[in-house]
Nucleic acid binder design. Structure first.
Lengths: 341, 341
DNA sequence: ATTAGCACTCATTGGTGTTGAGTGCTAACG
DNA sequence: CGTTAGCACTCAACACCAATGAGTGCTAAT
């Protein structure tokens, strides 16, 4: 229902504002080489676009800036899917292929690169407990009274914990415990582990080891840790270079959010697959009302391996970011699918 | 060589400035209940202290603030070792005792608490490669072509990596590789592992496995990772609440430093044991010329288990911070020594 | 339907005077 | 002689004001 010219004007305003961070006036648009209308004409359309809620005016005698709704229209209908730069592609690909054997290394390194390429903050979430199951369990004696419990997930992720043993647990006991756990728990998704532990495992365990409640609670602890997805952050301070965040108080809320893993996880929940863009208040989180979050998921063999997100100001280079994430998530998905087959 | 009164005045200025973040004038000191001199007298001493380089004046008509040298004198000679609050002690102790079986959990959690109690940033460094040796090595098959390599250090720290295997490596081969590595590498400090790997291990390995260069380089990679100490951060944004860091540009450098693990490690190098205080430029790092760093080391059984640091403005509550770190490092040291014996 | 012209708005900038906290110096005091 | 009252001086911070100019909305002409 927008005229061709209105769409063009909206697009121009968003592009200009993304570049300059300053309200865009009718004159500056009229001067663009691909525009052949006078400032007055443009002003009329701008007034219409404002009435439709796509633009806003900081004050009467300033230019226009896009509203949340304006960005949304831009992302949904106007965006030019800017191709990713050749050199960036090469850098990302070689990196990812290089570190394939170390999921966390690959992913955290990729996050670093992406945040450098975009100058925004990148956030990566590891696999969650609904899609991860236990692959192997092991107890390794460390000293006379301590041992390391090691848990391997089907994603190749490993979690460990040093536990101090109660008196009178022999090497043999440990081997038996580990054997029992492997029997009962292999293939069990992590979110079910706790219940299985206390029903099927508990009974058998009591029959040949003393102090088994203590051991059970230690095991539960160790396994619980694994169930929580890991979060990697990179470029958290990039937000400080954005002119609209010159004010320390605005930035504080954002950086605090980034420090709080649980809040971040909540933010990433309810994401469907593919590339998602959430603009400003669409995030539903007070602290980042002035930020946009673009996310992509990585799946292999039906498992959700992780989620990559990029957080920047609403005035974000959507085309570039979406292009990059699209490429990166595709690349990772391809590589890991090949690995798992 | 400072008179009693001068010491008292210096102490009062530092205390006041730490509380208020504003230059301290002669009048406000004179009004303190424990002071019975006129502003004029105090001004004379202040001029002397400035000549000695212990105080500075932001501009002619402002009060005085402590110089680096002034803080140094304060920390070395004037500080009242403020006892740690009862409730803080209890909180820290229960936490540490609770999480003992998980070094990283305990330490990162302790860092969080300390940063909350002090409102500064806490930085924790894990054990370094000079004091850590290999305890156990294991290869765990994951799929047909992948396996998880697990490295356990004598500190109980575990590192892992998913590796993709070359064609034609059987389960049996893997068991033999793991056995060989355990034979040759157990007890070897990490900084020596690489050389042992290429001298003693390489020869034997070639005799019964093909493609061994590939496997060797994967192993080296995995072991290298373990050799690098882990860094935990908490409360990085606390610096933003300090009035002297209202300016985004000043803060950027500091937060960037905190994002760079290698730089942080460098900062922590050349620390002797016990509690150390480094004030402003004493750190020798441009970005934190306006910050102070208080550090404490944790050793168990001769090994350096880790270092805890607190980073705040030079205008830091030295008494409180030193007290807390003293208590915490002592507590951790005691607990882990008991664990290792 | 488009555009030129014009009056109007208002954030930003720079200059100016005032205020007040704090100093250094001198002279008086016990 | 150490201490203190008194006083002139300095200078950041603040408020006030006028000038500037980018940008608008509206109207009338094209």
């Amino acid at each position: 229902m927008l005229s061709e010219r209105q769409r063009m004007i909206l697009s121009a305003i968003v592009d200009d504002y993304i570049r300059s961070a300053e309200p865009v006036g009718s004159r500056s648009i009229s001067k663009r080489s691909d525009v052949s209308f006078s400032p007055a004409t443009i002003r009329n359309d701008m007034a219409d676009l404002e009435e439709l809620g796509l633009l806003e005016q900081p004050h009467t005698s300033a230019g226009r800036i896009p509203s949340i709704k304006g960005y949304r229209y831009y992302v949904d209908h106007l965006i030019r899917h800017g191709g990713v730069k050749e050199q960036d592609v090469r850098r990302l690909h070689s990196l990812v292929a290089d570190k394939m054997n170390h999921w966390e290394g690959a992913v955290s390194h990729a996050a670093t690169i992406v945040s450098q390429l975009t100058n925004y903050t990148s956030i990566v979430l590891g696999p969650d407990s609904f899609h991860t199951s236990l692959k192997h369990f092991q107890l390794l004696p460390l000293t006379d009274t301590t041992a390391v419990a090691i848990v391997v997930a089907n994603t190749g992720h490993v979690e460990h914990r040093t536990i101090s043993l109660p008196e009178g647990v022999s090497m043999d006991d440990m081997r038996r415990i580990a054997g029992l756990l492997n029997d009962k728990l292999t293939g069990v998704p992590f979110y079910k582990v706790k219940s299985v532990l206390y029903t099927e495992v508990a009974n058998e365990l009591t029959s040949y080891v003393d102090h088994c409640e203590h051991i059970l609670s230690l095991l539960e602890d160790t396994l619980k840790e694994e169930a929580e997805p890991k979060v990697f952050l990179s470029g958290a301070t990039n937000i400080l270079t954005q002119p609209e965040f010159k004010d320390v108080d605005k930035v504080k809320g954002i950086l605090d959010l980034l420090d709080e893993t649980p809040l971040l996880m909540q933010l990433f929940q309810s994401l469907s697959g593919g590339i998602q863009v959430r603009i400003g208040t669409e995030n539903g989180v007070e602290a980042i009302n002035q930020c946009s979050l673009v996310t992509a998921t990585i799946t292999a063999d039906g498992h959700l391996l992780g989620t990559i997100g990029i957080l920047g100001p609403t005035r974000m280079e959507y085309g570039k970011v979406i292009g990059l994430l699209d490429y990166l998530s595709g690349d990772l998905t391809r590589l890991y699918n090949r690995l798992y087959k």
